[in-house]
Design a protein around this nucleic acid. Structure first.
Lengths: 213, 213, 213, 213
DNA sequence: TATGAATGAGCGTTCATTCAT
DNA sequence: CATGAATGAACGCTCATTCAT
């Protein structure tokens, strides 16, 4: 279920202690903040540690190297995100397609909007390392759960579900990123959200093989 | 029409000499290659210069610092891209909305697909600096020309053209990026392209205020 | 008779408890092993402690710092070695010179060969600190006991006993080290041992002032 | 003839320029001095560079890493030493064994004594890295040339030349090291030198298979 | 003007040592 | 007393940038 992280990229020890969890959380938060305030180029392990209120040494007790920090950060948030999407998909199993799409777009949008700083920080961190693996893992996971949901729609079926699914996810994920990077006024942002739902629905209407209008 | 670069980010001199232009082009190419082969983290000015067949000193004759190189690179390709979009928009002034959308998506898609390495390299370079400025400039530029085109549609009008325009551009740009980053097999990639056109058309159909089907 | 260690280099407490002695022994063993397996550069206090089955904290209960560990390790083995040599010398007091030399070379060689790993590890640790002091102390100690022995030879006397003594010890200690560092096949190693005895005897024959062959 | 250094351990570029050679020499000298004054543990690349009057960056233009510096240093001096020994051996080809031994011991002793600081520094640097390769190479080289010399002796032959050769070299190299590490007064040192020649001669006398007394 | 050796600030990382538990 | 997480000084090394040639 979870992404398959190469051993050398996962945190050195699993947070069992409460303090350890707190420290880990502090390091993640600090990473986000540094990423946001100083940018990925000015992010140094020392700066992250300072901002997290720990020493570099401590940071390196949790992450064997800088890459691992980024990896874990992405893993952390993407797994949470995938979880939310999975929940939403399960909750809408067998429902009409309209509800499914609305739920999917809204879940994703809200998850990303909840902590816009985190979202923006993660988008910025992507280029830093081969997060490609985590991202690919996330993509496959989500692919599977949304495809399963769409396949169960009560009022529609699709000749080429794979393509429809890939298209929808590409459009949703891509659009959200675009909007985040343009960082438009809130009203406009919300408007685009609405339009995105509408767009997905119109599209599904055009491509569905069976089911009433 | 061109982006307004802060003085400290623009190339030291405009390439008037043919030789200078060739060198510049070589440096841009080298940057792309290094970005692709070694990744943004391993990109050093020395490596770029080597690959371009010049000395570091020469590179610094053209760009006052590394940032400026990235800035110029993005400017270079985004201006070309904006130009293509502008041409397409002008060519479809007053045409039916369907043709406009098809032209817009296809122009953008093709421009990005023409040199996929460049596209991917640029996506990767984004985190490097405040390219945000160049990108914002590009966005505004394109916003203007597509909005003007849509406003001239022979068979449709929109109550909220701004939102429709922003939505379409966000969707198109975002989706293309998503697809590039997932790097799916060519056939699938092309399929999504087709679906994207379809999606935009369905959407416009739903939101247009006037004009028959 | 024991080396005079500068206060800051000696173990914090003398091991009176049996448990303490066991721990100390374990730490020494661990140090040897780490020295051999990982080399002196990769030897960290943490690694030594781990290998000894104790915590770093415990290690620091026995040794105020890393230097002290090395110091004590050398002291430990060199004192044992000096003791063996002293015993041998005492046992050959008043005997013919031939027996003395044979005993000396053989005692030293065997002591070093008994645990070749320890020997090699100690040779490697030398560069680590001013073990010079321990080594010098060891040298003086041995100088004295062998000089005393040679002076008592039943069949020989030397005009310059000091020089003869220094020469013999330099040759024996140095040759053994050379052989250990070249690490030749066992047979060859044993052969050199025999030759070394022969050489020392020939030498003493040439330089003795009195006493028939 | 020369040691086979793993690619990553040899200097980055061969010193062709006069300035480069000077810099290289300065770095070697600085390494020796730092080794002597601060000891191998306090030797940092920065300190070496400072002492050599260059920047760390420059040091790293000549040596890809610290290990390579040590490697090259040992190579440098051991090759010179091997050269001297080779010359001496060639010069005494076919001579009586007595002259050979005298020449060998004296050549080695003088080479080591010429710059006692260098000698001592090198002995200290040995433990630092796997100089074993360079040293082994040196040993094989010398083995060959001395064996060849001894085989040509006009007045002696040996049943087991290999063992005799190995013994002599072990004794000579080891004794010199011992003496250097004890650092006795000059007079004593010179005395031991004489005794060493004497010892080797007595030994050869005992083991030679043919030839006059 | 082009070159590329030299520079040195700054980064990632290690590890001896401490001290709250 | 033993523990081992936390500390942070210090190291090895990189690379953007400069400047003598």
């Amino acid at each position: 279920m979870a992404v398959n992280p190469p051993a050398h990229l996962s945190p050195r020890k699993k947070p069992i202690q409460a303090r350890a969890t707190a420290t880990l959380e502090a390091i993640f938060e600090a990473t986000i903040q540094v990423l946001l305030v100083d940018g990925p180029r000015r992010l140094t392990t020392t700066r992250v540690a300072e901002r997290a209120g720990v020493s570099v040494g401590t940071l390196y007790q949790y992450f064997p190297h800088k890459q691992a920090l980024f990896y874990a950060l992405n893993e952390h948030y993407l797994e949470a995100l995938a979880g939310k999407i999975e929940d939403a998909c399960r909750a809408h199993h067998g429902r009409p397609i309209r509800q499914m799409v609305e739920a999917l777009v809204t879940t994703y949008w809200q998850a990303k909007t909840e902590r816009p700083d985190v979202t923006r920080a993660l988008y910025r961190s992507v280029a830093e390392i081969d997060n490609e693996q985590v991202i690919e893992g996330f993509a496959h996971h989500v692919d599977a759960v949304t495809a399963a949901m769409f396949a169960s729609a009560s009022d529609a079926a699709f000749t080429d579900l794979q393509t429809v699914n890939l298209t929808l996810l590409s459009v949703i994920f891509g659009t959200v990123r675009s909007v985040f990077e343009r960082n438009p006024p809130d009203a406009q942002s919300r408007a685009v959200h609405g339009q995105l739902v509408l767009m997905c629905l119109s599209y599904l209407n055009s491509v569905r093989a069976v089911g009433g209008q």
